[in-house]
């Protein structure tokens, strides 16, 4: 349980950093930087998470780089979902209306000021729903780290099954995953309400307490991976 949470949060932190770096990098003018970011994004989106995880765990030791399983897990999850989230970051920044950019030119704001103070805060509100989906995917994705010897929730479920019975063990396990996912969703919805409130778009808090259906725009952003 604790391992599962560690992986989710560690992976999420790494993913958001990677997402912002790659997402911003994928829209700069410099074609080398942009091409590099795009390649990294497509690479990690295109090769399955399991493959990446096994690469870190089985292949790297061949070159003498033996990472602890936990590090492999966080690295794998962070890189994979970071690449997906980078597309969200890029898409959200592009979705900020052109008039906002023009206003920053009219006020002579610098590029950094424009991004940090004007564009990103607005894009942030747009990206939260998609990021929530990926956070849940990441939580679900942690279930595969038992493949690389980590004793996560799924691993313990299997032990519990041997001691008790299938229905009980997996029933409990699924409920725990669901509850954690539900709590994470609520937290993210809270963030979204706050972000929207900052934009002066008040939303009743009641809405924050309902689990939102996965945003179909995620599919539009190029699919997901569970």
């Amino acid at each position: 349980m604790w391992i599962t949470l560690q992986l989710t949060l560690g992976g999420a932190l790494l993913a958001i950093v990677i997402a912002v770096v790659l997402g911003l990098g994928a829209r700069v003018h410099n074609i080398v930087v942009r091409g590099l970011c795009r390649t990294v994004i497509e690479f990690f989106r295109g090769t399955s998470l399991v493959v990446q995880l096994f690469f870190l765990f089985f292949v790297l030791p061949q070159f003498g780089l033996e990472l602890p399983a936990m590090v492999c897990g966080i690295l794998g999850l962070g890189l994979n979902y970071g690449a997906y989230a980078a597309e969200v970051v890029r898409g959200s920044i592009n979705a900020v209306p052109a008039g906002q950019w023009e206003a920053t030119t009219a006020l002579s704001l610098s590029k950094t000021q424009t991004m940090r103070r004007i564009i990103f805060p607005q894009a942030w509100a747009l990206m939260i729903p998609s990021l929530t989906n990926y956070l849940i995917h990441m939580l679900k994705g942690t279930a595969i780290v038992s493949f690389i010897t980590l004793s996560d929730l799924t691993f313990h479920t299997e032990q519990l099954r041997v001691q008790t019975d299938t229905f009980f063990a997996y029933g409990v396990s699924l409920v725990i995953y669901f509850v954690v996912a539900y709590i994470l969703t609520l937290l993210m919805n809270g963030l979204e309400v706050r972000a929207k409130h900052r934009l002066g778009r008040g939303e009743p808090l009641r809405e924050a307490l309902s689990v939102k259906a996965p945003n179909t725009t995620v599919a539009a952003e190029g699919g997901r991976s569970a």
Partner: peptide
């Protein structure tokens, strides 16, 4: 629907496998 969507496929696979 939410329950199925928000829980891992791997766990669902194992559950079905042992059932």
């Amino acid at each position: 629907g939410d329950f199925i969507r928000m829980t891992p496929i791997v766990v669902q696979l194992l559950f079905a496998y042992w059932t």
